[in-house]
């Protein structure tokens, strides 16, 4: 049989199969779609967490405190060294400026600071870090290196807060991964069980095909096409559901978590996610069919 004739025969048989037992196929598509929606939500949540982390880390500046009596020349030298080492922008803050900021931040009680005879605050250099240096590990290493520079007394970059945030983000990511794996495994079991039901209703066809000389490949082909179709339909449904989620629920969620708003576009369905959904859907449909049809081939 020519390739086109085979394809046409197998497709016809696959479509007949779907038409003959639509309910079973609807269940298979639904369970596949649920798994894919779970995957999509996990991916969107993970993307959102990444953006949140990046935004929070972006607010963290490194403040390098200097020894009293550091001369302006030395300060300029240090400033240059810091720029080179961190790759970020640097700015020298005088004790007077620092005191002014502190007093402003404290509000009314801050006025008391202006009456101090001597400014207790040291000269400092503020460093705005480039994105690459914002990972907690990288920041820590950088701070350690900066501490060894001459005239540096202390380095502050909100270490504890950043580390805690990173730990929370990691736990959330791990949680979503575990949830996804659970949903995925459940879906595979449900899909393969459902497909077995669909194939069970056609076991007579398979038996007779085998008895009149059909190869396993010939018997399997229509079921694989069915699996692929189911995967594609489920992926389309999942894309629709995720788009609806991002469009209708997304803004409400953003309002709910406005204190975490990081600006920029919220994660929606990008072409990569669509490709992943179709790829995983097709793979799951195929895998489910292969597993399900196996036990009916022994005639």
């Amino acid at each position: 049989m020519s390739v086109t004739a085979s394809l046409s025969y197998f497709s016809r048989t696959a479509l007949n199969g779907i038409v003959r037992s639509p309910f079973v196929h609807v269940i298979a598509v639904a369970s596949l779609a649920i798994a894919l929606v779970g995957f999509g939500l996990a991916r969107m949540a993970s993307a959102q967490l990444d953006r949140l982390m990046l935004a929070l880390a972006g607010e963290v500046e490194m403040t390098v405190y200097l020894e009293p009596g550091t001369t302006p020349d030395k300060m300029a030298e240090l400033q240059q060294a810091l720029s080179q080492r961190t790759g970020g922008q640097t700015r020298v803050v005088s004790p007077a400026e620092a005191l002014g900021r502190l007093s402003k931040e404290l509000g009314d009680p801050g006025h008391a600071l202006t009456s101090l005879e001597e400014n207790p605050l040291p000269w400092s250099v503020e460093v705005t870090l480039p994105p690459l240096a914002r990972e907690p590990e990288a920041l820590k290493a950088l701070a350690d290196r900066v501490r060894t520079l001459p005239f540096v007394t202390q380095v502050d970059y909100g270490q504890e807060a950043l580390e805690r945030l990173t730990a929370i983000a990691r736990a959330l990511k791990l949680g979503s991964l575990i949830a996804f794996v659970l949903v995925f495994l459940t879906a595979i079991v449900v899909v393969s069980a459902t497909l077995q039901l669909a194939i069970y209703s056609r076991r007579e066809d398979i038996e007779i095909q085998k008895l009149v000389g059909a190869t396993d490949r010939f018997v399997r082909a229509p079921f694989l096409i069915e699996g692929l179709l189911q995967g594609a339909v489920a992926a389309t449904l999942a894309c629709g559901a995720l788009w609806a989620f991002a469009f209708f629920v997304g803004p409400k969620l953003a309002a709910l978590f406005s204190f975490l708003d990081v600006g920029g576009p919220r994660p929606g369905i990008d072409p990569r996610l669509v490709l992943e959904l179709f790829g995983i859907g097709a793979a799951m449909g195929l895998l489910g069919s292969v597993v399900a049809v196996r036990r009916f081939l022994r005639v």
Binding site: E204, E207, K210, L211, V212, G213, T215, D216, F218
Partner: peptide, 16 residues
């Protein structure tokens, strides 16, 4: 097996 069966016609007792 399939290639052998293609040369054998079978009339089954239970029709199939």
């Amino acid at each position: 097996i399939p290639y052998l069966r293609r040369n054998i016609g079978v009339v089954f007792q239970d029709f199939k």
